[in-house]
Design a protein around this nucleic acid. Structure first.
Length: 637
DNA sequence: GCAGCTTCATACTA
DNA sequence: CTAGTATGAAGCTG
């Protein structure tokens, strides 16, 4: 076999003269830097999933890790090739300005000022939620005439203009507030939080200024457009950009890739051995073209080479290895894929489907922490049961639409009940919280998959009931979940009063949903005034005709397993629809933010209003909260 | 400063 | 369902 293979031995001695093949742009400082530590053990890694294609040509004759990578964001020490050119604070402030060098005022703002634009978890979450609220608002199903295409770009543009972004300063390595495993559904989202500051390009790089100027890759997105190898969970073979490999313009010639911009930055980062953030893009099952991006943490570029692509032109290739010790992210996705395809059995699987077919898709039951064989017995029912006739509203009737209810059609009485605002986007994502969502019901003549029937068409995400470490059983999802996605309703028996121990009838009912509890208000909708049209999204407080208490102690669905959190990722929303000319209210759960796979789903249980005269104790939860959130209230229930 | 270009996007249609 | 394509925004380049 010619041309090397997956081993890491020294490349062939024939030196590759890149200048003959590649249009190398003159650069002030393209000085090769050799690893400084000869005693470093040879790099050992899993081989790439297949042999290199023929035409493989080693590009640089040195590879392997450098023992002490410089921290390029905080110049606390002096790495060999990059001179320590400024005090740390000054450097940071220069970087703050992007690539512009701005004269700095001496003796002014302390270092902390530079951090002001850096995010933390809360800032990052708020930017992302703000973006998605605006995006949903813009993509709401309305009159086709007024429909906005590319609501993601429009929302991004508005927020950029307002400065509603964070971590705008480029940096190598960790981005404050962005966690490994975080998921994104649009490139613009990653730009807004500073994870990857390119709206389309796959390689993001940064100019480092000193006495020598250098270009570094800071993040890459591998999203399938090029011929990458992304099968191994810790290894990524990434292709350089350019050469119009992925061009959608027919008249463009396919050409050799050039060692410029992103490609050059990758090359420099190989030699500087700096960490590169890797975002893995994959197909999202929500639609044929939709994508989901997973932040998979930090990698280092191990080697690079040039090979001939299918077109016969030169393509740069970079082999990246994931740094050890990071929480798994992409690996979780790979495992789920295996479970789904039945290639590997799930550790701790107790039941493949605890609903026994009551739901259209299975809900697995898993315990990989202890010996408990399952939760206490209950009867699974997919939807809430009104035991006695429970008239919640005046008689009312559904719509008269023939096919699917059209957004903006005010002849549709369901639309009118929603104030003319269709509650869902074309994907079936909730646009905004509101006092009460009116869906089309069983008596509406519109088609079963009318876009205004979201909470009554069963589970859509693949759920799993699992044993938590310290909070009993919990609920999580195999699928990534977009903010606003319907998760499940709260099923059970409608009761009139919550049983408590004081009633002398045994133990407390822990499986209760109760609208009379006090719930922390929170803002989820797009702020008013940002989109120029009348909207009543300002009201997020629920409003239902009479209190609703549901017990899932004996009869219930997956919702009974959702635990409480003071910083939840799920919220509830009352939904009403017609049945026999009466309107019934149900409790539907929606994703509060994007939720990565295998993340526990939680909502805020609220606090019981006590009737006792004890004013001080009128609002206090009975149970100690273990949610672990920095904003934990301590008690709930 | 700005116009033009490139870019591992997206959403639609056929 | 896949392929084609129309439209797109940010950041770099000159």
């Amino acid at each position: 076999m010619e041309g090397g293979s997956g081993n890491n031995s020294a490349p062939p001695s024939t030196t590759f003269d890149k200048s003959k093949v590649l249009d190398v742009k003159p650069l002030r400082t393209l000085v090769p830097v050799f690893p400084s530590s000869p005693q470093t053990p040879p790099f050992v890694c899993a081989p790439p999933s297949g042999p290199f294609p023929t035409g493989f040509t080693p590009f640089y004759p040195f590879n392997g890790p450098q023992p002490n990578p410089p921290d390029l964001n905080q110049q606390t020490h002096t790495p060999a090739p990059l001179r320590s050119f400024r005090a740390p604070c000054l450097m940071e402030r220069c970087l703050e300005m992007g690539t512009q060098m701005v004269p700095l005022m001496p003796n002014k703002a302390p270092c902390g000022a530079a951090k002001k634009q850096d995010g933390d978890r809360e800032v990052v979450n708020s930017v992302r939620m703000r973006f998605d609220a605006l995006r949903r608002r813009l993509s709401r199903l309305e009159d086709p005439k007024e429909s906005v295409s590319r609501a993601d770009l429009k929302a991004g543009k508005i927020l950029m203009k307002k400065g509603a972004r964070t971590n705008a300063r480029k940096r190598v390595g960790v981005v404050p507030g962005v966690e490994i495993g975080d998921i994104f559904f649009f490139r613009i989202e990653m730009l807004l939080v500073g994870l990857h500051a390119q709206s389309m390009a796959g390689i993001d790089c940064m100019v480092v200024r000193g006495e020598i100027e250098d270009l570094l890759a800071v993040s890459i997105v591998s999203s399938g457009g090029y011929d990458d190898e992304a099968e191994d969970k810790d290894v990524l073979i990434y292709s350089g950009h350019g050469g119009n490999v992925n061009s959608n313009k027919k008249d463009k010639q396919i050409a050799d890739q050039k060692l410029e911009r992103g490609n050059l930055a990758m090359e420099r980062s190989l030699h500087r051995n700096n960490e590169v953030r890797v975002i893995r893009g994959m197909k999202d099952s929500i639609s044929a073209t939709a994508k989901v991006y997973v932040y998979d943490g930090l990698y280092r570029i191990q080697e690079s080479w040039v090979e001939k692509g299918k077109s016969g032109c030169n393509i740069f290739k970079y082999k990246l290895l994931r740094l050890p010790g990071q929480p798994s992210a992409f690996a979780v996705w790979k495992s789920i894929q295996q479970w789904r395809e039945g290639f590997s059995s799930r550790v701790g699987l107790i039941l493949p489907d605890l609903t026994s077919g009551a739901e259209s898709i299975p809900v697995s039951l898993v315990n990989d922490v202890d010996e408990e064989k399952g939760p206490a017995y209950f009867t699974y029912v997919a939807t809430v049961k009104y035991i006695k006739p429970f008239k919640l509203m005046e008689p009312s009737y559904g719509c008269n639409c023939r096919s699917a209810c059209a957004p903006g059609d005010l002849n549709c009485s369901c639309n009118r009940k929603n104030g003319g605002d269709f509650p869902y986007t074309a994907n079936g994502v909730l646009v905004s919280r509101r006092p009460l969502v009116h869906e089309c019901g069983p008596t509406c003549p519109c088609i079963p998959n009318c876009k205004n029937r979201v909470s009554q068409t069963g589970l859509k995400v693949r759920l799993e009931v699992f044993k938590t470490k310290d909070r009993g059983w919990g609920l999580r999802s195999w699928d990534p979940i977009r903010a606003g996605t319907f998760i499940c309703e709260y099923s059970g028996e409608v009761i009139e009063k919550v049983k408590t121990r004081q009633d002398g009838e045994g133990e407390d009912d822990d499986y209760v949903f109760d609208t009379t509890r006090v719930y922390e208000p929170f803002k989820w909708n797009c702020e008013p005034g940002i989109v120029e049209e009348d909207n009543n999204d300002a009201t997020e407080e629920y409003n239902i005709p009479s209190p609703l208490i549901i017990s899932a102690k004996n009869v219930g669905n997956v919702a009974r397993f959702m635990n409480h959190s003071c910083n939840p990722n799920v919220f509830w929303q009352p939904v009403a629809y017609e049945q026999n000319n009466e309107s019934y209210v149900r409790i539907a759960f929606f994703a509060l933010r994007h939720i990565p796979p295998m993340t526990e789903l939680t909502y805020d249980y609220g606090t019981t209003r006590t009737d006792e005269a004890d004013g001080n104790n009128a609002l206090h939860g009975k149970k100690k909260c273990l949610c672990g959130s920095p904003r934990c209230r301590g008690h709930f229930g």
